[in-house]
């Protein structure tokens, strides 16, 4: 065990893991985090707390993660390279670890011009692969990269993201391999709507035996309407939205129910896919649907390990 988190235990016992997401509020509203922690407790093995996602200022991922811990819910703290240099990153991780946070997801971060403070200066002192390297060195060697020894090494279960739909497509599996080499214990993928392309990506992963080296969790997001599906197709970078999904949403008499159905089907397909060790449910601003999706896919109750 690297950190002994619930997520790590589920994955290393060979279980099919479920993670979900609780997006922090745009305010000093701890009650929001508490509410969703209570509502969703037991419906997933751990919950991601996003780090100013889409470059919009929100309650910090570390504070949000600590509130979850206070409610007895396990967090996956996200950390992007956009807002912190290597000094702040390592310092925050030492603090997070001291406070009991065990799962850490390393991300590049959306560019600040896409958010609500487009005039902000970015950092990108390190990229997400180098970020993994920093934390792996802290955990395994008990030191700051190229510098001092730590009085106590943080115990971390390290995660990273991968987008099988990003370009250049043929590079994506190489990027995954780099992330594993740099220290990723688990991977949460970009949202999957094009299951065939994801299967092709997994074929590449398996042919390089990477599925034996890292736990891959497939990302899903339920659609609320055909409009949202079209928006994702045209406006959201790095998502492939097949026309068949849009047309299903258009024809549905109850689009929201159809969105949930599609999501559950995808989770079931992922469960059958060799090398996929779990799902990551990102019900963005629709957290109340997480239990329905997880239950619908036959993944409740969650294992106690």
């Amino acid at each position: 065990m690297k950190a002994g988190s619930n997520l790590e235990k589920v994955l290393s016992s060979g279980g099919f893991a479920v993670t979900a997401e609780i997006g922090p509020p745009k305010g000093a509203d701890g009650e929001h985090m508490r509410h969703w922690a209570r509502e969703l407790k037991g419906k997933a093995d751990a919950f991601n707390v996003t780090d100013n996602q889409t470059a919009v200022v929100r309650l910090s991922s570390m504070a949000g993660s600590i509130i979850l811990l206070q409610e007895g819910v396990e967090p996956v703290m996200q950390m992007v390279c956009r807002d912190r240099n290597r000094i702040a990153m390592q310092s925050d991780v030492l603090g997070a670890s001291a406070l009991g946070i065990k799962n850490l997801l390393c991300l590049t971060g959306d560019h600040q011009t896409l958010g609500n403070l487009p005039g902000a200066k970015n950092v990108f002192d390190v990229d997400s692969i180098q970020e993994l390297l920093l934390f792996k060195t802290m955990r395994d060697e008990g030191k700051i990269l190229g510098a001092d020894a730590l009085t106590k090494a943080p115990q971390l279960f390290l995660g990273a993201a991968e987008n099988p739909f990003g370009t250049p497509h043929e590079f994506r599996v190489h990027r995954l391999a780099k992330k594993i080499k740099a220290g990723a214990d688990f991977i949460q993928s970009q949202v999957i709507y094009d299951i065939d392309r994801f299967e092709r990506f997994m074929e590449d992963v398996r042919s390089r035996h990477l599925d034996g080296k890292v736990h891959i969790l497939g990302g899903v997001t339920p659609l609320k309407s055909a409009k949202v599906a079209k928006y994702m197709k045209n406006k959201v970078a790095g998502i492939i939205m097949p026309d068949s999904v849009i047309s299903r949403m258009e024809k549905a008499s109850d689009p929201k129910a159809e969105g949930i159905r599609i999501c559950i089907e995808t989770v079931k397909q992922l469960r059958e896919m060799k090398g996929v060790h779990g799902v990551h449910v990102m019900a963005i601003a629709w957290e109340e649907k997480v239990p329905e999706i997880v239950e619908g896919a036959g993944l409740l109750p969650r294992p106690v390990v």
Partner: peptide
């Protein structure tokens, strides 16, 4: 320095 991010499309 280690390749494209996930936003490359």
């Amino acid at each position: 320095l280690n390749g494209p991010c996930g936003g490359s499309h």
